[in-house]
Write a protein that binds this DNA or RNA. Structure first.
Lengths: 349, 349
DNA sequence: GACGTTTTTGGGAGCGCTCCCAAAAGTTGG
DNA sequence: CCAACTTTTGGGAGCGCTCCCAAAAACGTC
């Protein structure tokens, strides 16, 4: 099927190129009868303007770039990512934007930077939370690329980002453990070069401080958001002479690893070790026992980031926005709480 | 930072626009000294040609579209998808192509089809395995969009695809169970409107037939590739008056659900029920007990699909190609095999 | 050193749109 | 019915490249 050009559509509708262009761009000054006629011809012929021609003339692409930093590549199979991407994707589609995906890998970071960013393939960029010191971020800022981060950044103040209440969520989770009588509570943190890792750890510390419980460095182990990491860290905690009675694990995926380590040590969750984690991925309600976990609205984070960026691109907002979405503690059986429902409920989207 | 145009780079290098273009496109007829001078200027100024201008003039975009059909949206959080995407993404990057992601959703299928496909945003399309009867596929074929499927399609013969030996892998897995003495073997299939679902089920049937074991319809339950689905199906199987001694589950994710159902029935894997599944996702080696599973090279499937498509676009190959990657049975503890290693090994990438 | 070849270079045209400005067509009121 | 507006339409210019063709430069040979 040969693709028509705007001129051919114009000829078929007996109007000028400009009028067809106005119809395509919803310009008001076209007579309704003419508009309908043009639309009918467009419809009949399945015409769609060429993206390249449009972009060249209008200096806009209607494409949003999604940058997945190198540090995320190893944990990319975590269901967190598909969920964010789904949120971003649907928010883009519904506003008429396309999504270009770019995963950074170490060996092509340089050339990528030029080819992807300078070639103006997209109007704005969403970057998934990365290492705090990721070198790409200062470059993006220097280039004044319209940018929204998923996950806040501690140093750059004038950026837009969408994040969840990592600290407060973690604090609530740990406070819940304290409320259940636990005093010797460990934590397996996320990578501490990521903001989410730091903030969830800080929430843990805050809950302990508020309860007057001293913070023991040997009870804080840095994990890496993988099952394997959660397994290893838990094994270390269980090997302590005085082992903890509860662990706050900074992600569900690590908590799955933690569960396995506890089982292999012939201990029981929650009787011997209570576990509370973070994310509420689909797997959380399905673990054995089902995980008490801090639900974060992952899909919404993605959708909100896309919305922010598009509003910024379309000048509906000017100033950088910071949006922090709330978390909620989903109580299931892994924490040993009385109020846990008998069966693991199905987690939200 | 103001972006320069090719004319400005040309002026700075004291050559013509055409010469700079030749340098950018690796045309051989440029004197080495001139080429170096131009490259230096390009480097110094961080110049990259505008994608839109280039595409308009050359009729090529250097973009590959990745189409995720509607039927995949619900199982998109399965780690299978990130892994395929990673394979596709890296294969594209390394060949200088960008990746545009499009997830179909029911409510915008129509408008999407026009906007995304006709606007020539990409040179070719990779489509993840979908329902056999997905209505988008005939449209793509009619439009002669360069296309590679991840997962074969039973009806369209002249398509390129990359798939794994689903049938043979399943046959091997079930044959292994038979070799362990099992005779009453059930299967939880994938959705039977997907080729992978059908082929894995056929492999199951073939193994039974080859061993002279009759096929019992009540032992074949259709699942949906989710944990929940695996759980439900397993619960049904366990409720049979004469319950199976082994189950071949068509995906690791469903097998996790199956494990839980078995545990909740106070039975043990593999003593009471042996389980063999398919995928070898990272979680398989981490389940309890670790899953015996058919490893499929997911990352390679993505990478191969991207490679095929690009070779086709660059006319290195003309005819449709069908590539079938091998699977291998990874024996762990869930099947009760003697040859199972004591600890679950870590799965491949 | 002039001539014929081959290699390298420059410039025009054109890709298919948008956007601006001016012209044409409508509309209103005296 | 015409002037004075307002709304609608058409066409030129230009977005920043690629590609083709012809001109210029470089190279060889006698």
């Amino acid at each position: 099927m040969t693709t028509l050009t705007i001129e051919e559509i114009a000829a078929l509708a007996s109007v000028s190129r400009s009028t067809v262009s106005r119809v395509l761009n919803n310009h008001p000054s076209v007579r309704p009868t003419v508009r309908d006629r043009v639309l009918r011809i467009i419809e009949e012929h399945g015409y769609a303007p060429r993206a390249a021609a449009r972009s060249l003339a209008s200096q806009r692409t209607n494409v949003i770039g999604l940058l997945i930093p190198r540090s995320a590549a190893t944990i990319f199979t975590d269901p967190f990512f598909p969920q964010v991407i789904q949120g971003i994707s649907e928010a883009c589609s519904s506003r008429g934007y396309f999504l270009m995906l770019s995963m950074l890998t170490a060996d092509m970071e340089q050339s990528f930077y030029h080819r992807f960013l300078r070639s103006r393939h997209f109007d704005g960029l969403i970057m998934l939370s990365s290492d705090i010191d990721d070198p790409i971020l200062p470059l993006l800022i220097k280039d004044r690329t319209p940018l929204v981060l998923v996950g806040r950044h501690p140093y750059f103040q004038h950026l837009s980002w969408v994040d969840v209440e990592n600290r407060e969520g973690a604090r609530t989770a740990v406070a819940h453990l304290i409320g259940l009588g636990h005093r010797r509570i460990a934590t397996i943190t996320g990578p501490l070069q990521m903001a989410a890792g730091i903030n969830r750890r800080d929430g843990y510390k805050q809950a302990l401080l508020e309860a007057g419980i001293p913070i023991m460095p040997e009870l804080m182990i840095e994990g890496d958001f993988t099952q394997e990491g959660g397994y290893q860290a838990t094994a270390k905690l269980l090997a302590l002479t005085e082992r903890p009675t509860a662990i706050f694990v900074a992600s569900d995926t690590m908590a799955i690893g933690a569960l396995r380590a506890v089982i292999e040590a012939n201990l029981t969750v929650p009787r011997d070790i209570a576990i509370v984690s973070f994310d509420d991925l689909p797997i959380a309600s399905f673990a054995n026992p089902p995980l008490t976990t801090v639900r974060q609205p992952v899909y919404e984070m993605g959708a909100t980031a896309a919305r922010l960026l598009i509003e910024h691109l379309e000048h509906q907002i000017q100033e950088p926005q910071q949006i922090c979405l709330p978390t909620s503690l989903i109580i299931r059986r892994s924490c040993g709480s009385n109020s846990a429902p008998a069966a693991g409920e199905k987690g939200g989207r």
